[in-house]
Design a binder for these strands. Structure first.
Length: 737
DNA sequence: GCGTATCGCGTTTTT
DNA sequence: CGCGATACGC
C-alpha cells in the first residue's frame, strides 16, 4: 500500500469511508509514515487524530511489522476496538493480533502474564471504583471516625484523595494541605482510613484501578527480566489522548520503550479535563524531554465542525490563562452561528431543547446524531422528564454505570464470592438483603466466617437469629448450589436467579421492568464467557456502557438521542449538540474559583463540549434556579460565556418572545428558523385535575394524582411506573374517576 | 437500648 | 442512589 501526499487544503473525506487511505494532509502523512524513534503529535479537536493512528497501524503492518509487536493504548476500550477494526479493514489483514486497550486492561493482562516476576499469584480480584467506595464505607462505620459535630468527608471525596495521592505521586498530607485545605482537620482520620483500606485490599487480594498501574510500574521497574521481555515484545507503542495520562502512566511508557524508543503519543493539551484524577497535561510538554530527539507534529486542520463553531471554540480556549496557541481552521462549509439561549428557568430550558429536538427529528435528522451535554449527571433531570413525557427515547451516558446499579451489583456479588470467598463486600451485599438483617448483624456474620479457611462453608455454621433464620437458610442453599465445581457461568446465573428473582421483584418493585431487561442482557453477556474469572475482571475494569444496547443492532436503524456528561462525551462527535445549564452557579462547578487549577480545567471542559458539534451548536442556560429553600434565585450566564465576544454567537432570549438581549436582528432569524412555537394540541389542558383523582395514561397506565406542581402540570403516582410529572400540553391523560 | 426499616433530600467530573 | 434523621420493634 502506498500513501500519496495531498496538499493541506485537500479535505479529508468522512472517516467512515475505508477507501480513503490516500487522503491525508501533509502533517497526518508525516505522522503516519514516520520511521523509528519517538514522535509527539499535537492534535486539535476534530483533526482526525484517530484516523491518523489507524493509518499508522496500517502503514506499519504493510511494511511487514508483525502485528504482535504493536501495542495500542487508548482511553477507552471502545476506542481501541474501533481502531483495530478499521485498521484491519485498511490492511486486508486481521488486526486481531495487535495488543490494544486501556492502560488498565493492558495492565491486567501483563500482570497475569508476567506477575510471577514480582512473586504474584495470579488470582487477584479487581475492584472497580464503586466497590472501592463500598470498602471505604465499610471501614468508616467500623473505625468510628470524626469527632462530634463535624461532618466527615464523604467516601467519594476520600477515594479521590486516595487515588489522587497515588496518581500525583505525592503524599496524602501534602496533597490535602495543598489542594484540599478544608480537610486538614481530618488528616489523621484519613491517614488511618488509608492504612486500613490498604490492609483490607491486601488481605483480600483485591486491586483497584490505581493498584494495577502502580504494580505495572513496579513490574517494569523492579524486574529487569520482565522489563526486557515486555519491551522487546512490543516494538511499536502508540498512545492516544496523551494529555489524560498521569505520572505513573508516563513513567510506564518510558520504561516500556526503553529498548527501542518507538513511541507515538497523540494528544491535545486544550482537551485535558481529567486533572482531578491525576492526569497532568504537562506530560505532553515534557514528552520531548523524556524522549530526546522527539519529532513534534502539529495537526491543526479540523475536519469536524463548520467555521462559526470553530470561531467560538477558538475564542473559548483563547481566554485560557495558559495556552499553547493552536488555531484550528476548517474547509467545511456552513455559516450558521452557534446559538446561546437564555431560558426563564430550568423548565424553559428543557422545553426549548425538547422543542428543537422534536423539530430536528421531524425534519429527518437521525436522533442518534443529536446529543445533549452537561456538567453533572443530575443537570439533565428536568430534560429527562420532558423527553419522557413526549415519548422521545434517549440514552443517558455518564453518571451511574450499569455495574453501579444495585441489581447488577447484587448478581455480580454472587460471582465475586465464588472467585474470592473473602470478598467481604460482596458478602455484605448479599446478607443485607435478608429481612431483619442490617449492618450490625452482617458485621457479626462476616467476622465469623472470615475466621475460617472457607468462608462459604463456614456460613452454614453460623447460628442465625430466629426472626431471619428462614431467609438465611435459603441463602446458604444457593451458595452451596453454585459453589459446585466446574459450573459454567451461565449455569451459575440460572441457579442464582432462582433465589434472586423473587427477592429482586420485591426489592425493586417500582421500576421492575427496566431492571429486569438489564438482567436479561446480563444473561446474554455471561453466555459469552467460558470462565468466571475473566467475566468478573471484565465487568470490573470496563463495564459495558449499556448492555441494553443490542450488540447486533442493524447499523441502518436510527440511533437514539444521547444525553451525556461532558466527560463521557470525549472523543465523540454529533451533528447537533446542546450544552445545558451553562449558568453562573453551575458551570464552572460552584466550588472552584478563578485562579484555581480547576477553574482552567472547567474552561477546557466547555471547550471539549462545544467542539463535539459538527453543524449545529446550542448553548443554553436558565436565568432562574431553585435554591435549597424552594426559593428562586436569579443567575446569569456562565463566566466562560460572558467573556466571549457577542459576535461569535446568536443570542436568543427565551424569557421574552419578541426581544433579544443583545442583538435583536439575529433573533428574528433564529426564532423563525428553529424556535417558533407551534400551537400544541390542547388535549388535556382544558380538563381540570385535582389531587387524588384516578387517571389513565396511554403508556404508563393507571395512576393517582399526587400533586399539581404548576400550571399545566400534574404529578402522578403510577401504579406500575412510579411517580412522574406530566405536562398536560403533551401527556394524554384520561380521568378515570 | 440496640438495630432495623422508612422517608426526605442533596448530588462534580471517571479510566 | 446514598446519606442523615426519625420512628418502630425486639
Amino acid at each position: 500500500m502506498q500513501y500519496t501526499l495531498f496538499s493541506d487544503n485537500e479535505q479529508a473525506p468522512s472517516s467512515d469511508n475505508t477507501a480513503d487511505f490516500k487522503d491525508l494532509n501533509a502533517a497526518q502523512h508525516k505522522a503516519v509514515t514516520h520511521g523509528e524513534g519517538p514522535v509527539l503529535v499535537i492534535a486539535g479537536a476534530g483533526s482526525g487524530k484517530t484516523r491518523t493512528l489507524i493509518h499508522r497501524v496500517a502503514h506499519l503492518i504493510d511494511n511487514d511489522v508483525p502485528p504482535e509487536s504493536i501495542l495500542l493504548l487508548t482511553f477507552t476500550r471502545r476506542a481501541a476496538k474501533e481502531m483495530l477494526d478499521r485498521a484491519g479493514r485498511l490492511t486486508d489483514r486481521s488486526c486481531g493480533r495487535i495488543t490494544g486497550g486501556t492502560f488498565h486492561g493492558t495492565s491486567n493482562i501483563l500482570l497475569h502474564r508476567y506477575g510471577h516476576y514480582l512473586g504474584y499469584r495470579p488470582g487477584f480480584t479487581i475492584v472497580d471504583r464503586a466497590d472501592a467506595e463500598g470498602i471505604i464505607n465499610l471501614l468508616k462505620s467500623s473505625l468510628d471516625l470524626a469527632g462530634a459535630g463535624k461532618t466527615f468527608p464523604n467516601k467519594r471525596t476520600i477515594i479521590n484523595i486516595l487515588s489522587g495521592s497515588i496518581n500525583k505521586n505525592i503524599s496524602i498530607d501534602n496533597l490535602i494541605s495543598q489542594q484540599a485545605p478544608h480537610l486538614t482537620e481530618f488528616l489523621d482520620d484519613i491517614l488511618l482510613l488509608k492504612k486500613h483500606y490498604e490492609q483490607f485490599k491486601f488481605d483480600h487480594a483485591l486491586m483497584d484501578y490505581d493498584d494495577l498501574l502502580v504494580n505495572w510500574y513496579r513490574l517494569l521497574k523492579e524486574s529487569p527480566e520482565a522489563r526486557h521481555e515486555i519491551s522487546s515484545q512490543y516494538q511499536y507503542i502508540m498512545v492516544d489522548e496523551y494529555q489524560d495520562t498521569n505520572h505513573i502512566q508516563a513513567k510506564i511508557i518510558r520504561l516500556l520503550a526503553h529498548t527501542h524508543e518507538n513511541v507515538m503519543a497523540v494528544g491535545d493539551d486544550a482537551q485535558s479535563i481529567y486533572n482531578f484524577r491525576g492526569a497532568d497535561f504537562y506530560n505532553i510538554i515534557r514528552f520531548p524531554d523524556q524522549f530526546p530527539g522527539t519529532e513534534v507534529i502539529k495537526l491543526e486542520q479540523n475536519y469536524r465542525s463548520i467555521q462559526p463553531i470553530l470561531d467560538l471554540t477558538n475564542s473559548i480556549i483563547s481566554c485560557a490563562k495558559e495556552k499553547f496557541t493552536k488555531t484550528l481552521f476548517t474547509n467545511i462549509e456552513g455559516t450558521e452561528k452557534p446559538v446561546v439561549y437564555a431560558a426563564r428557568n430550568e423548565s424553559g430550558e428543557a422545553k426549548f431543547i425538547a422543542d428543537t429536538i422534536s423539530e430536528l427529528i421531524e425534519d429527518g435528522t437521525d436522533p442518534g446524531r443529536i446529543a445533549v451535554l452537561f456538567r453533572s449527571g443530575y443537570h439533565s433531570y428536568k430534560l429527562e422528564m420532558e423527553l419522557t413525557s413526549r415519548m422521545l427515547e434517549f440514552e443517558k451516558r455518564g453518571g451511574l454505570k450499569l455495574t453501579e446499579t444495585a441489581h447488577i451489583k447484587d448478581v455480580l456479588s454472587f460471582f465475586r464470592i465464588l472467585i474470592n470467598p473473602w470478598d467481604t463486600l460482596s458478602w455484605s451485599r448479599l446478607l443485607l438483603h435478608l429481612d431483619k438483617v442490617g449492618p450490625k448483624t452482617v458485621q457479626k456474620i462476616i467476622a465469623f466466617i472470615s475466621e475460617h479457611d472457607d468462608p462459604g462453608e463456614a456460613l452454614e455454621h453460623f447460628k442465625a437469629g430466629k426472626s431471619w433464620q428462614d431467609g438465611f437458610q435459603a441463602l446458604i442453599a444457593v451458595v452451596k448450589d453454585i459453589r459446585q465445581p466446574n459450573l459454567s457461568p451461565s449455569t451459575i446465573f440460572e441457579k442464582l436467579m432462582k433465589y434472586y428473582e423473587p427477592l429482586f421483584e420485591k426489592l425493586y418493585h417500582d421500576d421492575y421492568p427496566k431492571r429486569h431487561k438489564d438482567l436479561d442482557q446480563l444473561k446474554i453477556l455471561i453466555g459469552e464467557y467460558g470462565d468466571l474469572q475473566s467475566f468478573v475482571d471484565d465487568t470490573a475494569l470496563d463495564p459495558p456502557e449499556s448492555i441494553s444496547a443490542d450488540p447486533f443492532a442493524d447499523p441502518a436503524t436510527q440511533g437514539k438521542l444521547i444525553l451525556s456528561t461532558i466527560h463521557s462525551s470525549k472523543g465523540l462527535e454529533w451533528d447537533t449538540v446542546f450544552v445545558l445549564s451553562l449558568a453562573d452557579s453551575r458551570f464552572p462547578h460552584p466550588n472552584v474559583f478563578p485562579g484555581d487549577l480547576q477553574y482552567e480545567e472547567e474552561r477546557r471542559l466547555l471547550y471539549v463540549a462545544a467542539t463535539r458539534a459538527e453543524n449545529r451548536l446550542y448553548l443554553t442556560y436558565p436565568m432562574e434556579l431553585m435554591s435549597p429553600d424552594r426559593k428562586f434565585i436569579r443567575t446569569t450566564m456562565s463566566p466562560f460565556l460572558r467573556e466571549l465576544s457577542v459576535e461569535r454567537y446568536t443570542a436568543v432570549n427565551g424569557t421574552r418572545q419578541r426581544e433579544s438581549l443583545y442583538t435583536p436582528s439575529f433573533l428574528e432569524e433564529s426564532t423563525t428558523r428553529h424556535h417558533q412555537k407551534k400551537p400544541k394540541k390542547q388535549l388535556s389542558a382544558r380538563k381540570t385535575y385535582e389531587k387524588g383523582m384516578r387517571v389513565h395514561h396511554s403508556f404508563f397506565g393507571p395512576g393517582t394524582i399526587r400533586e399539581i406542581p404548576g400550571p399545566r402540570r400534574v404529578e402522578v403516582a403510577f401504579d406500575r411506573h412510579g411517580t412522574k410529572i406530566l405536562h398536560l400540553d403533551f401527556a394524554e391523560l384520561e380521568i378515570v374517576s
